[in-house]
Nucleic acid binder design. Structure first.
Lengths: 214, 214
DNA sequence: CCGCTCACTGACAATGATGTAGATAGTTCT
DNA sequence: AGAACTATCTACATCATTGTCAGTGAGCGG
């Protein structure tokens, strides 16, 4: 039934770049996930092919199946890790600077960085389109808006017109959607990058003005 | 070399639902494109499979190859037709109402309708992510912003502070990006639909206020 | 009625992707 | 050193998808 390979040694010699490396299971998993994540951001979940991931990670594709059970297992793992990483980066960006126009610009810059630097914004949109991630819930805009709303109402304690929560929610949602869409195609040159930066500053002024005036 | 099929007639009888239909070439092409466009909006360009398109259009997959030459040919045709249709619908929406807050709300509603009704927004994002369509150019935001800027400067003739074109551009770009991102996941129920409608009205007020004040 | 055109079909080839099986070779523990 | 463990490999099986081919039949002009 099984044809035993005759010339293993020869094949080995023919491709001297195959010194079977042995990593720890953890190292192997992260190497695989790193390679898969690149493909995920570039081509979406459908673009994750075992052979290609394996080639990029410097191993053969059955090794991936050994570590993740199946292609679906790999996809789930890389999706989970990417979303986790995105949320962590966004949280970092939000935690640093809460008040003032300049800080708001910095905040938007930070969020945009989180979305575009490692292709997480692209990944997120791929997932939303593919139905992997429930768009709005995953972006956790609501939670962020709640935090902002607390600060906002705090600041205008005593004023007569208190803003509604929905107003605050929309005010947070708007830049979130815009930055997400922008991150699909990162700027190709310095000029585009400059324009996008000015856009974020402009957007920050707009949002800030709206939050202040109520 | 070739095994001649022995029981064609029997096979025909076995599946009586196969009366070979003959359409005109035009009818066939549009039927195929209609089916392919559904798949394109749902799963992106990578989701266009000849067998599936053929099944949906009620024919065998070689017929598609007969009409479009190759899968790539089909994809190009359906992409071209979808973008054409999206631009036509957006143009329609923009042409109807140029001034005032209420009309601006209607305009945004119209644009959102164009993006979400037939999944054109999803299609567009699939294409942008896949690298088929150059995001910003394809949305033709610049051309729209130029038209808006003419009207805007016209209205404030004589005033001292004229808004820059970039300000107008950003003011058009912002709702464009937001609506596009929103169209990825159309509302699942009446409540979500209502919230999105209120968001568009809120956005229209914001944009209108900015355009008026300068 | 005849014959041509071409939309259409089933069968098959070719390619590429996932998954399986058994052997091989680092690592670590005793 | 020897044994156990397991990360890794090659080879193969299986399936889905695109594309080719030769033939079929509906409609139309003579």
């Amino acid at each position: 039934m099984r044809v035993v390979h005759p010339f293993v040694a020869m094949a080995r010699k023919a491709r001297p770049e195959l010194p079977r490396k042995r990593r720890t299971a953890e190292e192997a998993r992260t190497a695989i996930l790193d390679s898969a994540e690149k493909l995920l951001a570039a081509e979406g979940p459908a673009g994750i092919r075992l052979q290609e991931v394996a080639a990029d990670a410097g191993m053969s594709h059955p090794t991936i199946l050994h570590h993740f059970g199946s292609r679906e297992g790999l996809v789930e793992a890389v999706v989970a890790r990417a979303l986790e990483s995105l949320h962590a980066q966004l949280l970092d960006a939000v935690r640093s600077s809460p008040q003032g126009t300049d800080q708001l610009t910095a905040l938007l810059d930070g969020c945009y960085e989180a979305l575009s630097s490692r292709g997480h914004g692209r990944t997120f949109l791929w997932l939303a389109l593919s139905g992997y991630a429930p768009m709005m819930e995953e972006l956790r805009v609501r939670a962020l808006a709640e935090a902002v709303h607390v600060v906002r109402t705090e600041k205008r304690r005593g004023k007569k017109a208190q803003p509604t929560f929905e107003d605050t929610y929309f005010t947070v949602l708007l830049p979130a959607l815009a930055l997400l869409a922008l991150s699909v195609t990162p700027p190709q040159n310095a000029e585009e990058a400059g324009a996008e930066k000015r856009f974020r500053a402009w957007l920050a002024r707009m949002v800030h003005a709206h939050l202040e005036k109520g």
